[in-house]
């Protein structure tokens, strides 16, 4: 069943690349956060595949941690966007350039 491995890795890499594209071209902050979720999912897939192929549960457990961190990140990130939207009336990252040089 090692064919799972190559296929899964290709799928993981593809989803990760799509996530990068989404992260780089989207202007909606929530969509960017979703692109990040996409990348995290791709990573999870790779972890699970390696855990399965190398008969070790370490990868699986790492997936649990990734999911937990993703939850925390989504919660805080969305809270920040709510705050920004409330004070600026937009969640367009193109307009969030207060830290420009």
């Amino acid at each position: 069943m090692t064919s799972y491995m190559i296929n899964n890795l290709v799928l993981s890499l593809a989803i990760f690349s799509i996530g990068i594209i989404g992260f780089l071209v989207k202007r909606n902050a929530i969509a960017i956060l979703m692109a990040i979720e996409l990348m995290l999912n791709a990573a999870n897939l790779a972890f699970v595949t390696f855990a399965y192929s190398f008969a070790s549960v370490d990868g699986t457990i790492l997936v649990l941690f990734v999911i937990t961190v993703a939850t925390a990140e989504a919660a805080v990130g969305l809270a920040i966007f709510i705050r920004i939207y409330r004070s600026r009336g937009t969640i367009d990252v193109d307009k969030m350039t207060t830290l420009h040089g």
Binding site: E37, V48, Y52, T60, I67, A75, I82
Partner: peptide, 29 residues
Amino acid sequence: MHQEFVAAIQVIVYAGAIMVLFLFVIMLL
């Protein structure tokens, strides 16, 4: 790949909780 536990977590936490949170925020805003 017989990873039932991760699959369950993926459905319950990710698809269930986090994405609902996303939709919720989109609606809320």
